[in-house]
């Protein structure tokens, strides 16, 4: 069931475009932002609002790397693996994080708190190695700094705080 509030938001997004088709990616963002990932139900709901077959919505979803069909950790930590960051140790950070958490890419930890993703150039190479936590930038990553980041986020989660 789509909540009335979200349906209203969706309609507002659709009205913002000269043609309705443009709204599908913004709607998918809306659903993913609120639910953390795109479930089958989410795809069906977006399809219903857009007046598109769910398969066509899925076709769009599968093309874009930021749309996730499975739940991620509450804190999704992404590290850039492109050349500028890699030259400054970005890939070592990625390996360090995965070892620390014992997870594969985009796979949440058993407690659901963290997941790790590899991303391409985030356009902040001056601060390499760069990453994002729930799409907020974090930079000049070091193995020690990443350990502190994990501890901070864990403390924030235990303290009942909201997102990153």
């Amino acid at each position: 069931m789509i909540s009335e509030a979200r349906r209203q938001k969706a309609m507002e997004i659709i009205r913002g475009f000269p043609q309705k088709s443009s709204a599908v990616i913004p709607l998918l963002h809306l659903w993913q932002d609120e639910e953390g990932y795109l479930s089958d139900d989410a795809i069906a709901e977006v399809a219903e609002i857009m007046g598109m077959p769910p398969a066509e919505v899925q076709e769009v979803v599968s093309f874009y790397s930021m749309f996730h069909r499975r739940p991620l950790g509450r804190y999704h930590i992404e590290v850039c693996r492109s050349l500028s960051c890699a030259l400054m140790g970005g890939r070592d950070i990625l390996d360090h994080l995965r070892r620390r958490l014992g997870v594969g890419l985009n796979e949440p930890t058993p407690d659901g708190l963290f997941s790790v993703g590899a991303v391409e150039c985030l356009a902040r190479c001056d601060l390499a190695p760069v990453g994002q936590v729930n799409l907020e930038y974090t930079d000049r990553l070091t193995p020690e700094g990443v350990d502190r980041l994990l501890a901070d986020l864990r403390a924030r989660a235990e303290g009942g705080g909201a997102g990153a």
């Binding site: 492109s82 050349l83 391409e120 150039c121 356009a123 902040r124 190479c125």
Partner: peptide, 11 residues
């Protein structure tokens, strides 16, 4: 859509 590796001017 600034995505070219090593480019961060538009940001």
């Amino acid at each position: 859509d600034e995505s070219e590796p090593g480019t961060f001017k538009d940001h």
